[in-house]
Design a protein around this nucleic acid. Structure first.
Lengths: 241, 241
DNA sequence: AAACATTTGTGCGTATGTATG
DNA sequence: TCATACATACGCACAAATGTT
């Protein structure tokens, strides 16, 4: 392996490994040879090989575990529907056996400008913040931060903790149906907090969906920012008229 | 700067730099001190500092330019609407002065299974592939690959090259209106090709939107995969009933 | 339980390449 | 041409996690 045409060695090696994995000539058993073995095979320093591996880990092609080895990531994505009737739990039900939501934390706090505007409250009004985690097949899928009008939904966190469902919780407060008004979708690297909660390795990507839900009268009832593990999830936007 | 609690030095430094930038105590002029200066300041080897910077470049917080220096990325995003009436050019017009689309390449080819299914053609049927690039204010924003039924739209590439607009091109073929049926949104690291076209640095994130557009009768007319620069774009999904 | 081998992760020193101004 | 600054690559050493003996 030599340097050529201004393309860094580690890049060339990353490309080769990616291709070899695709072709099944490497890691077909789900496991990559050790760094030592690979660096000898490519005739480069272990650091150089590690740069290549790091890039592939970044891409989500590989997963490295200290003390165990480097493994090929299998990825088939969960399709997450986004429509006026989006219900965070439905839709995914057919794609995975074990889906569960849990309440990580909650807090009563004064509404920030952003939250207040979205919920049509006055800035500083009491709002309930819920920090929730969703898992599918035992692995984290999404991490959401939601805000609710604390005066309109007193004890929402208790109802949610019992039901484990936003939809059911709303029903408890007499809201039989609600709609998603808008969703802003972006993508970024997971921050430290998300890395921990979603059990991701540094550099992982999250799909961020910021949404406002409204009741039948069009009054905002929930403002939420959900971070999805990009490697595991795709958002399906239905815009059928 | 010393090692503590199992958190790697370069991670601690990355966190400090990120925080300092946020607080305005570092790079407030848009420019970071040199690697040498920073490594001395943190009392670590330049390699260690470079690891921290590399991580922040990955995150899109910094941008390193060989021979010039390391700079703070300013990021305010363009909001890109996705609805049944999504028109790739409209909507963005108010957010940026100079918006332009260009045709990078086109080719006549047999439809792959995926393309054929989306366009409701038989596999292997002749389709036209367009590779286009969109720029705003002189910087690349998105890179799209579109497929069209070559028999229904002969010479589509010429019309597009002239008009620079998919909407106008469809009108030329008698399609006065068309709708977006579905959009699949995901996020991943930009591949080599996208890195080049979108002028990104390695590790950058792209928002991927895979969409099918249909004419008034519901017949698919365009199947497209668009890669947006995640640092510059957010997708706005309107699901108002 | 303890010692050991294996494997990935971190850190430093050094040298050279490449791009900018 | 030259200095500066980021990029790549190698060698060495040790840390940390894991699994086995």
């Amino acid at each position: 392996m030599t340097r050529k045409s201004g393309v860094a060695l580690w890049r060339q090696i990353a490309d080769q490994i990616r291709q070899a994995i695709g072709a099944g000539t490497l890691g077909s058993d789900g496991r990559l040879p050790t760094e030592m073995a690979l660096s000898e095979r490519f005739g480069v320093n272990r650091h150089t090989l590690r740069s290549a591996i790091a890039a592939l880990v970044q891409e989500g092609v590989l997963r490295a575990e200290q003390g165990r080895g480097t493994f090929v990531e299998s990825r088939q994505k969960l399709s997450y529907p986004i429509s006026a009737r989006t219900r965070f739990s439905t839709g995914l039900r057919e794609q995975t056996r074990d889906r569960r939501s849990s309440l990580l934390a909650y807090a009563l706090e004064p509404a920030s400008d952003r939250v207040a505007e979205s919920l049509r409250l006055t800035s500083g009004a009491p709002v309930l913040r819920l920090e929730t985690l969703s898992e599918a097949d035992g692995r984290p899928v999404s991490r959401a931060t939601s805000w609710f009008d604390a005066e309109r939904f007193p004890g929402f966190e208790k109802v949610y903790a019992e039901t484990g469902s936003i939809t059911l919780s709303f029903q408890h407060f007499g809201i039989s149906d609600y709609f998603r008004r808008s969703t802003l979708v972006s993508a970024r690297h997971a921050d430290a907090s998300d890395l921990a909660d979603l059990k991701l390795s540094a550099g992982a990507i999250v799909l961020v969906a910021v949404a406002t839900n409204v009741d039948g009268e069009g009054v905002p009832v929930q403002y939420a920012e959900t971070r999805f593990v990009a490697d595991r999830v795709e958002l399906s936007v239905s815009t059928q008229a």
